[in-house]
Design a protein around this nucleic acid. Structure first.
Lengths: 331, 331
DNA sequence: AAAGCTTCTGTGAACGTGCACAGTAAGGCA
DNA sequence: TGCCTTACTGTGCACGTTCACAGAAGCTTT
């Protein structure tokens, strides 16, 4: 059996294609009589509009593409994605937009994304974890509107975004350590080509000033293993550390393991602070004192920005949302 | 500037639309001369085929929809999704299929999914965590082919799937406890309307036989909190437990907390075994002995099934993959 | 030399929409 | 009465493909 078309509906309702189309697209000039006849015809025939045909004439696709710029192996290590995907699907569905997922981890994938987007297959682009200097941003050029969840370093003024106030979060944790009377406060950062890597360190340095020497700073790559390594490094370089601010919960879990291996007790000998308030924060022992990012709102604001752009808004300002200190037992 | 069409490419290459179309679709009858001319014209004009137009005539959409049947709040609690999404995007991209994500948590969402799929907007359906008796399965009816990652209870013979050998995993863990000389072995299951809930309990019971009394079995809902509650229950009902097999790592993390609160040491007093080998398994203290599921292969096999069906394969058998015992410090 | 393959090419029609336009009927106003 | 507005409806065309078909050119076979 063939799928019913708008013709079938029109015939069943005793009106013309045009009138059905008008009803479907919310045009105001449809008589009450026609309206009920068409609505009955639609439910009787089980008609569903053919998006391909529509998109052929409207030049819109009814879909938004989410571009994940992580290398394949590291994809989804960051639990923030889940929230973003969830919120995106939900909010887009309300506008009858569907969410298409694409990878942009290597050059081949990027090429595919560019072809897809420039080929007009999406009404909007949702960038995720796009790194500094990613050629993708340029290649996307003057296509459909793009936004990012989290800043794209170096493109802050061209790609609107919603993000947590990373600096604020780092200051909150560092100030908490200071208020507790900790005197040798170290930090394990994320990669220095990501907003979280850079700005959390900045916030840390803002509070400690010249006390934040390079001997007290180690770098990780967000993984648990890198956190463990960095912590071991720090303990070797500066054994009298009494607090450490780790730029992610996952790395903090690694740091806890290193501290345990070195025989330091947490929080008595060394206070440990994480960042993210992710699920690992409560499964470690002791549970992590950490910084909560308003993930849901970040995602919502990101989508809101994108929808506004799709609706034709001009330049839009970034949205920066406050973080919150969550005190548990590790500090 | 308008996007170039197949006409523009044909004109630039000095051939007709038909020839360009044949080249694009891999028809064998294209002369070498025409081939190079067209290829140059394509790269000069930056032509990208318009999927909407194509799909209008071919009745194929070039996309597969992944349907997530969890209620909105619990979505993505299970880390397995990440792997599936990742593998799906990758494998589908190789076939130039794009992945669309949809939610089917409540009746409204389900209705949307059904409209979408029956409206012919997807070439295939990828079911995830569809529960027993979900009306979605029926509603999808005779649409495009559907597969599931993990069995859909009650629909095993109609929806092909790839899954881990849940029973085997449960037996491996239980036998390990027995071999260690543990005598009072309890279990915390998942929800009894999921394959993991049912079959892991079955494997457990297969090994213990009549020793698996209901006093030794508690039920959770996959959450960490439920694991903690279930463990507390068990300790109250049967204080002399010396091992517990928990049907997920996340719940096992909760169980560890309950054991710590009760003053039992792990693994000395009570051995704890998890399931999944997820990231929490290594961030708990002590790290969890657990069952590894071959997540990547499960995902790969699922997609492979779907692709085969899209290519016109008939009835397909489920693919069941072996699990593996991973020994850490909790048992 | 005619007939029959094989290889390659161009053309018209169709897919199912939305939109611009033309057209109708009813009512208000001069 | 005639004209203008408002509310509504029908029709032709265009969107960019693929596909079936017809036909041309070069070979091989009869």
């Amino acid at each position: 059996m063939k799928r019913p078309t708008i013709h079938d509906v029109a015939a069943a309702a005793g009106v013309s294609r045009g009138t059905v189309s008008r009803l479907l697209n919310g045009d105001k000039y449809v008589s009450p009589a026609a309206r009920v006849a068409i609505e009955r015809a639609i439910s009787e025939t089980g008609y569903v509009v053919n998006r391909a045909a529509r998109s052929l004439v409207t030049q819109r696709t009814g879909s938004v593409v989410m571009v994940l710029s992580e290398p394949y192996e590291k994809l989804f290590e960051d639990p923030n994605y889940s929230t973003l995907i969830r919120v995106a699907i939900k909010m887009l569905a309300e506008r009858d937009l569907s969410l298409v997922m694409m990878l942009a981890g290597d050059a081949g994938d990027r090429e595919r994304v560019v072809r897809y987007v420039r080929g007009g297959h999406a009404d909007g682009v949702l960038l995720v974890s796009t790194h500094a200097g990613d050629p993708l941003v340029e290649a996307l050029g003057s296509g459909p509107p793009a936004v990012s969840c989290g800043a794209v370093i170096g493109q802050e003024s061209v790609i609107p975004y919603a993000a947590a106030d990373e600096r604020l979060g780092a200051r909150q944790m560092t100030e908490y350590f200071v208020a507790q009377g900790r005197r040798r406060i170290a930090m394990i950062t994320g990669p220095m080509d990501t907003p979280g890597g850079i700005q959390r360190l900045e916030g840390f340095a803002e509070v400690l000033g010249r006390k934040a020497t390079s001997k007290l700073i180690a770098h990780g790559d967000w993984t648990q293993a890198s956190g463990e390594r960095a912590m071991a490094d720090l303990l070797e370089r500066t054994p009298d550390i009494d607090a450490v601010f780790v730029a992610s919960d996952l790395m903090a879990a690694g740091a806890l393991a290193a501290l345990r291996a070195a025989g330091r007790s947490v929080p008595e000998d060394v206070a440990v602070g994480g960042f993210d308030d992710s699920s690992v924060a409560v499964s470690t022992h002791p549970p992590l004192t950490t910084i909560r990012q308003p993930l849901t709102e970040m995602a919502q604001e990101t989508i809101r920005l994108l929808l506004a752009l799709i609706d034709g808004a001009g330049q839009l300002e970034p949205v920066i949302l406050p973080t919150e200190l969550v005190i548990r037992e590790s500090a």
